[in-house]
Write a protein that binds this DNA or RNA. Sequence first.
RNA 1: GCCGGCGUAGCUCAGAGGCAGAGCGAGGCACUCGUAAUGCCUAGGUCGUGGGUUCAAGUCCCACCGCCGGCUCCA
Length: 639
Amino acid sequence: MEVIRVKVNDVELHVEKGTTLGEVFRSIKIDKAVGAKAGSRIIDLLTPIREDLEVTPIFKEDPESLDIMRHTLSHIMAQALKELYGYKKVHLGVGPTTEEGFYYDVEVEGHTISSEDLPAIERKMREIVERNYPLFRKELEREEAIGYFTELGEKYKVEIINRIEEGEVISLYGQNGFTDLCRGPHVPSTGMVGEFRLTHVAGAYWLGDSKRPMLQRIYGVAFWDKEELEERLRFYEEAKKRDHRRLGRELELFLIEEEVGAGLVLWLPKGAMLRKTLEDYWKEEHIKRGYQLVYTPHVGNARLWQTSGHLDYYRPNMFSPMEVEQEEYFVKPMNCPFHIAVYKSKLRSYKDLPLKLAELGTVYRYEMSGVLHGLMRVRGFTQDDAHIICTPEQVEGVIHETLEFAVSMLKDFGFEDFRVYISTRPADAIGSQEQWELAEGSLKKAVEKIGIDYEIDQGGGAFYGPKIDVKIRDAIGRLWQCSTIQFDFNLPERFDMEYVGQDNKRHRPYMIHRAIFGSLERFVGILLEHYAGLLPLWLSPVQVRLIPISPEKHGGYALEVENHLKNRNIRVERDMREERLNARIRDAELQKVPYILVFGDKELESKTLSVRSKKEGNLGSMTLEAFTSLLLERISRRE
RNA sequence: GCCGGCGUAGCUCAGAGGCAGAGCGAGGCACUCGUAAUGCCUAGGUCGUGGGUUCAAGUCCCACCGCCGGCUCCA
């Protein structure tokens, strides 16, 4: 008998090789553990130990426990499917855990699972949980495993086995007549899982490859605690309420219509006002920071796109060309070539650099119909684009300044929590080693200097340069990709961009693409979801609504007030409808107008205003001057 | 693009082979009103588009378009 040493917390034990952690824990009276961790490795209680090990038990309270339990739930779901539709009819793909639950990709012969089937599957799962089957684990040799799963008709599992690397253990887990190829970890019995709910079913390609068959992915959410599960389900409800597509229609901000075209946005008057506010703010901030605004056309000659390389590399995403006087023109999918043309309009000296060209540039890209989504993913959108052309010596400062700019701007919109990702050199990169090192180094330094944590996406950069992506966290915790700062070693070469250095010689400049909002459409979508439609005062398309109780009697006074406010650039709307006061108040509230002023005899007589705030309720009466300065102050503070 | 679901009045939806409906919104009339829906009347539809099955098609079948949930894609 071979003995190995297992250290559990501070207790050291000597056990027979091949003993499972479950047995070890039982011997020292740890009975509530769902698994254990050895360093960063998670080991379940069913796995035999074959070498000396130091472990800490994982209990339900530990974050790692969720994953173990959710993984078992995906197996329970697989078994439920097999019991419902027949063991030979259900072919299993993969069934991993997610951040909030689990899913399983399956193929059911002769049946397509729809959301109507979910309650029955869930019921069957609960039965399996109820029966509390112990899980077992076994290991097979490759050939055995292939034979076993071939026998079961599990073609996808056989494929996975063939992809498992030589020397790696092939493990199977199962319970009561159900066996699945699985790396684990799992809880020891089906009764040990938490609260769960199946949420939806969707298509998913086998191995994520669009050329392979499409399986059905059944999603579930799971938590230990019922309250936590319900909170998550409420989160979905909340997200649904915040859906910018709904808000966009209800608040009359924008329209996307079949008749106009899929993925093409019409900005309605209120949405246009919101957009104008964003644009004005954006332009002012850019001018303050030394950017120069440019305007460039919507179409460009095919030769331009040939030089830029877009026709060779980006063509599938471009709209079809049009012919004008025997020449082809393309609608622009990007602004860069135009900005480069601006740069090249004269000979540039190092003294002109960094040159920062900015434009709210509307671009058109062909996106597959299935990916279009409200304002978030469209076919025509306006990038808040800029290109910074600089010398190698300036790179670091430029990147730092740009990132700082992006963060400060996003903060002005009420976003406080940022995630930063740096994508580094991929295998097929162009550009020299020095270029990449300088660029990547300056990206890291900039992020560190600003003091935001970042993650590295190793090899995730574009072939033409590394980049920083900034994601913002919204009010209900979702992350949205916004800003990008992207190096480009490609276009300066292709367009033969130059500057004259201090040495009186020609040099190749560095070029950086960057966007802060990403696109105006998408950013407005994010704002709407972040604020659940209740935009800050400074962004609200209508800031004040005036309601004369009797339009006839009090409308004149309301008009006076309207003019006063309008002269101070406050956005006002007067509701002159012959409706009841309550109805008009309700309407203004539903339209999420920040301030409502009611005019009646009292106000007319005392020349005051009755102010009702969306956020604070009825503020009572105040003078026009007091209200105006209150409003102007709040607007200037970007409240 | 792929898998699944869904397209009925401006909006939200009911109708599932046999007379095209409701609420909100819109227009009209009355009410003259103090902080989240006054009442009555009226108009509004090639039931996404095109084809097919049937005596008869929103309803069944096929194709296309669009939307939704995902997948894939996003140099």
